[in-house]
Design a protein around this nucleic acid. Sequence first.
DNA 1: ATTTTGACTTAAG
DNA 2: GCTTAAGCCAAAA
Length: 107
Amino acid sequence: MSNEPTRSVFFDKVYDLCRQIPTGKVATYGQLAKLAGSPRAARAVGMCMKTNPDAPRTPCHRVVASDGSLTGYSAGDGVSTKQLMLQREGVIFNGSKVDLQVSQWQP
DNA sequence: ATTTTGACTTAAG
DNA sequence: GCTTAAGCCAAAA
């Protein structure tokens, strides 16, 4: 029984992908969008996170911008909390950005 | 059904 | 290196 109706295939895939991101790794919006079925829906991906408070369910903090910068995140101190959380999970940061060369999720 | 917005991305100045 | 512009997708009003 689906107590939680599928909002849309796109949403569902994005959420699923977020949960597939291993600890210590990060994915970009464009990457999730591509994996979700639309390589140009990066904006839609980010919007879905914000419009859906699935925080504990979807580790949206593992999702960063294409160049490793942390964007959005309206929890805690914002990107600061997000950054610290990622560092704590083992993600390598290069200054104020994620080192995608090392910590970007590779499906 | 139409319009607006939004946690994006890429290109150009 | 940073700012501005345009393009693209999907959901919410």
